[in-house]
Structures are given as structure tokens and as C-alpha cells.
Amino acid sequence: MREISLGDVPGLVGKELGTSEWITIDQTMIDLFADATHDHQFIHVDPARAEAESPFGGTIAHGFLTLSLLSTMNFNTVPKIREQTMGINYGFDRVRFMSPVRSGSRVRGHFTLAECRFRGAGMLMTTYDVSIEIENEKKPALTACWITIVQFDPKDRPEGV
């Protein structure tokens, strides 16, 4: 994984930072997510019924399961900031679930740095335009505007920002 400095981040605004590795969303993952969230709707956990009664031809992943994979996709794709002491998920301005993710599908994330701004003495707020691609599908599983905060020691703040 490549590393960058805090001072490099503003120069990356508008650039795609990378594409994650493929992740397979199988039925076991879907079932475990259903158990964790208490969302056992048949389109997620009952393959026979989902095939017979849904337009999807089988079970599909929860949208929030797909969304939750952004954290690991980000960790393995976006360059590490040397001075970072902690990363914080600040939230989303927009999330759109564009296409269902069928059980057994592979997905990967695309990350573009849309904005960054220094806040306070030791924080950098970053906004990413993200999408999760489904292998061999034209439409993405989701698109989102994701906001994170990079914390760092104030002594490491680049001059002039």
C-alpha cells in the first residue's frame, strides 16, 4: 500500500485514488449480516423462495451489507497518510442503491477524492465519491458521497493550510 503525506492530499482532489480488490458476497456472508441486523427478509435468506417469488432470480445482499464493505475496500485501496493517528467515519451526504447484488457476486469499490479541507488544529475532512461495481454488470451496486475525518498530531499540520 502506498503512503502519502498530509501535504500531498489537496493535490489529489478530483483524482481517482484506486479500485479495491474483488470481494465475493456469498450466502454465508448475507446470512451472517441478516443475523447481525435482525433483517431476515426472504429476499436475503431464503434462496428457494427468493427464486420463486422475487424478480431477482435468487437471494440478494442487503444494501447496507454492500455499503458496509466500503470500510475494508477503503482500507485496502486509498493511500495511507503517514501522519494519520486515527480515521473516523463521519457519514454520508448521499447513498443510492442502484442495482441488487445477487448472492455469489463479486464487488469492488472505486474511490475518487472529491474534496478535502483542514479543520481545527489536527483534523482533515475528506469527501470521497465512491461506487461499488458488480462484476459483469453495467450498473453499480451503489454510489455514495462519503465523508471521513483524518486525525493527526497538530505539529504535523502542513504550513499554509
Rank of each mutant, 00 (worst) to 15 (best):
I30F: 00
G11P: 10
F111Y: 09
A36E: 07
T77H: 05
Q151E: 09
A52E: 14
A50C: 14
R157E: 07
W146I: 03
M125Q: 14
R117A: 10
E16P: 03
K155S: 15
M123T: 11
L142R: 03
I60Q: 04
A34H: 09
T148W: 05
H38E: 15
R96I: 05
Y90H: 13
M98H: 01
S71A: 12
N76F: 11
F56R: 02
V95M: 04
Y128R: 04
E51N: 11
F64M: 15
H38Q: 12
R82G: 01
G14R: 05
F152V: 13
I147N: 15
V45E: 10
A114W: 01
D35A: 08
T112E: 06
M98S: 15
G7W: 01
D156H: 08
M86R: 12
R2V: 05
F64R: 03
V95H: 03
A36Q: 09
R96S: 08
S105G: 01
P55S: 09
G160P: 06
G120N: 05
V130Q: 03
T72G: 09
I81R: 03
P154K: 07
V130F: 05
I23H: 06
G109P: 05
Y128D: 00
L6W: 03
Q84D: 12
V13Y: 02
G109A: 08
M29D: 04
N74K: 12
M98P: 01
T59C: 15
R82S: 08
S68E: 08
G122A: 05
R94D: 14
P10M: 13
V78W: 02
P10R: 11
A52N: 11
T28F: 11
S20C: 06
P140W: 00
E135C: 07
F118T: 04
R96F: 02
G104E: 01
A52C: 09
D129K: 12
P100Q: 04
D8C: 11
D46W: 12
V107F: 00
Y128T: 04
S68M: 10
S99V: 05
N76H: 13
F97T: 05
M1T: 06
D153K: 13
L69P: 03
V161L: 14
V13I: 13
G11F: 10
F64I: 13
F111C: 08
M29S: 04
S68P: 11
G122I: 03
V161E: 11
E115H: 12
S103C: 10
D8G: 13
G160I: 10
L32I: 11
Q84S: 15
M86C: 10
Q41H: 15
L70G: 00
G160W: 06
D93V: 01
E83W: 01
P79W: 01
G57T: 03
E21N: 07
G122T: 03
I23G: 01
Y128K: 01
K15T: 14
R96Y: 01
V150G: 02
T126C: 15
M125D: 14
K155W: 04
K138F: 10
H38N: 14
E16H: 06
S103W: 03
A141V: 12
G7C: 12
A48F: 06
F64T: 13
I4Q: 07
D93T: 02
P47D: 02
F42D: 07
G109V: 07
T143L: 08
T59L: 09
N76P: 03
A34G: 08
